[in-house]
């Protein structure tokens, strides 16, 4: 009984979470303003673990360069207006403090 409920709950969570992450990848980015924009912009081509893996040694300027590399050579379809929000989030949460 409890087992079934738990399984159902887990399944429901998966269904809800799936569209947001596109895949079943348990990568949890730090909470904070801009997180949604980052999840939307940065999970199309690869999982979000690319971000924490490259931390906390990239400072704001190097995160800026990394975003430009994603948009430039890698062709990431990121709206110009979102870039600032994404950069602020990365600099606040995944750069040396």
């Amino acid at each position: 009984m409890t087992k079934t409920l738990l399984a159902a709950a887990a399944f429901a969570v998966f269904i809800v979470a799936a569209p947001a992450l596109a895949q079943d990848e348990p990568v949890k980015l730090k909470d904070g303003p801009g997180k949604d924009a980052v999840q939307a912009a940065c999970s199309a081509c690869h999982s979000l673990d690319y971000i924490p893996m490259n931390s906390p040694f990239l400072d704001r300027a190097r995160w800026d360069a990394a975003i430009k590399k994603m948009i430039g050579p890698f062709g990431a379809p990121i709206d110009e207006r979102d870039v600032q929000v994404i950069l602020d989030y990365l600099a606040r949460n995944y750069a040396p403090q």
Binding site: Q23, E25, V27, H46, S47, D49, Y50, P52, M53
Partner: peptide, 21 residues
């Protein structure tokens, strides 16, 4: 903080750095 020990299909547990790719 992020790496885990996980097995891809047909593999034993290895050090997962990124899921996709």
């Amino acid at each position: 903080a992020e790496a885990t020990l996980e097995a891809l299909k047909g593999k034993r547990k290895l050090i997962k750095l990124t899921y996709r790719p």
